[in-house]
């Protein structure tokens, strides 16, 4: 009997699957739910950022760019299409200014123009 059951284990598995509900997620027909810890788009707390450039130094993918003229005049930019979504900038920032949100980065038709200005400070 045991042997018989084992012989037809795949058949019983598909019959079981037929009676179970499909395991497919609702997206895109239902709204998208992403887990809390997912590393998505990069956001910044402009009050905390001082433009020190630690995040840019440690970024492995060249996804962050800092144009710095002086202490008070800088522009921090993020290229979602070059980002490795590794979270290193979050670790490197001493003030906890930069972090990943759990929002999905949307697909685009032109990656080179996809630049998010995180913080722009004019002197």
């Amino acid at each position: 009997m045991e042997k018989f059951k084992k012989r037809f284990s795949l058949l019983s598995a598909i019959i079981q699957a037929w009676f179970d509900k499909p395991e497919t997620v609702g997206y895109p027909f239902l709204p998208l739910v992403l887990p809390e810890g997912f590393r998505g788009a990069i956001v910044i707390d402009p009050d905390k950022c001082t433009g020190c450039g630690l995040c840019v130094r440690d970024c492995p993918a060249g996804g962050l760019r800092l144009e710095k003229k002086s202490r008070d005049e800088f522009k921090l930019m993020h290229h979602p299409a070059s980002c490795a979504y590794c979270g290193q900038c979050e670790r490197s920032c001493l003030r906890g200014a930069i972090s990943h949100s759990n929002a999905l980065v949307a697909a685009t038709t032109d990656a080179r123009e996809l630049v998010v200005v995180l913080k722009e400070k004019q002197g």
Binding site: P60, A61, G62, G63, H79, P80, A81, S82, C83, A84, Y85, C86, V105, A107, T108, T109, D110, A111, R112, L114
Partner: peptide, 30 residues
């Protein structure tokens, strides 16, 4: 495949797919 990302600056990597083909859509993420 969008831009080369982590592998930018490597001698054996050309860069993104758009260096070779006309790309219609880019999906970022790693």
């Amino acid at each position: 495949s969008n831009t080369g990302a982590v592998f930018h600056g490597s001698d054996t990597v050309l860069g993104g797919v758009d260096k070779i083909l006309p790309v219609d859509l880019y999906i970022p993420g790693c």
